[in-house]
Design a protein around this nucleic acid. Structure first.
Lengths: 205, 205
DNA sequence: GCCCACCGACTGAAGATTCAGTCAAGGTGT
DNA sequence: ACACCTTGACTGAATCTTCAGTCGGTGGGC
């Protein structure tokens, strides 16, 4: 199924999308990037739309992989949770590519109903993962118990998408983006360091 | 300068972008929508890129107008602030158009450096307006004093962009989006109702 | 000898941009 | 008041470009 060749093409597709956007994806450019003929792309994916769909799946899958790697670095739930969010905000080629492609795909989905369903599904996956971590963190006394995990998860992921887009569109530095997300986690779940939520007036000045 | 004609074309451009995206903006479609010839568009804007630039300015300006209207509805700063955020999340044609166009333009800026600067400028404008309101709210004892106004403003606006994009791309309902933003305001500034922040363990169960 | 993965060259359509003017409004010299 | 010129707004149709998608064919493993 997903032969080497398909993977090779999809990897190239993500690279091209990250670099020129969905709208800038020219089948010919893609074929050059992947080092194959244009015809082969049609052979494997049928048409442009089919290619997009597969690319989206591919991006999700790759992102999922990062995610699960993150979850296995034994840290405590609160740290894991932060890691999971900050993962999307790094300036390594792989992450930048994924983030950019993700943003593009989401933007395209506004006008292309075909992309909506897979997009929603994987958004939900991400949100649910995060919500689960929040619950764990709460159970471990590392997060404000009063916060609704699903609400918080949805907010934090949406925030990450928002700052990520600002970063990529040059309205914000990466450092600032990360800082803001960290601050949001604190605002939503309280100072995580040691004990419980009720951060109240505990903070410095 | 901005003759009637230009305004007419730009209004049509926003409509077309909101409906088919920047990617879907065909000069011919635009000319039909605006009821003028394609050539006139080139006459006024030079080329496609020039058109985009002017459209972005136009969207900003229009958004600014909403904003300032919002600020004049005498409510208290805390209410104003919420209003300013929620303004972008309404299902009226005007707002939907503006939001969709805004999202598209931001997404385009990732690949089109020309758009970056005006985009940053007007993002900053929005953020600063919000930060000012937060300061007022704090001064009036309606918001947690410990929150850094600029951080919070940047987070809340980015969150609005994030949920807005999810709404437009069909991953979230409008109601949910509004609810989440309201929740974020509370998480960042505390229960606003009466007195200060230190909401602490005050909330119900 | 047939099927699968694959390629180079091509096409048709869609779109962006340009061109060669038309038209009405505002001088200007007489 | 009136011919005449200029200019800015505007158009229809042609032209130049860019693409997605197709076709006929090739090689190599079985």
């Amino acid at each position: 199924m997903s032969s080497d060749r398909q993977r090779q093409i999809l990897e190239a597709a993500v690279r091209v999308i990250a670099h020129s956007g969905v709208r800038g994806l020219r089948v010919e450019k893609l074929s050059a990037e992947a080092g194959v003929s244009t015809a082969l792309i049609y052979y494997h994916f049928g048409d442009r739309a089919g290619l997009m769909r597969k690319t989206l799946e591919f991006v999700n899958e790759r992102a999922g992989r990062y995610t699960h790697e993150a979850m296995e670095i034994g840290k405590d739930p609160r740290e894991q949770l932060e890691l999971l969010l900050l993962l999307e905000l790094q300036d390594t080629p792989a992450v930048r590519e994924n983030s950019a492609a993700w943003g593009e795909l989401r933007a395209s989905a506004v006008f292309n109903p075909d992309l909506r369903e897979p997009l929603s599904t994987s958004t939900r996956g991400w949100v649910d993962d995060l919500a689960a971590m929040i619950r764990q963190a709460q159970a471990a006394g590392l997060a404000a118990a009063r916060a609704d995990p699903l609400d918080v998860a949805e907010r934090l992921t949406a925030l990450v998408e928002g700052v990520s887009e600002r970063w990529l569109s040059g309205s914000m530095t990466l450092e600032r983006a990360r800082e803001l997300v960290e601050g949001a986690v604190i605002a939503e779940l309280g100072e995580g360091s040691s004990h419980v939520p009720r951060d109240g007036s505990a903070g410095p000045a």
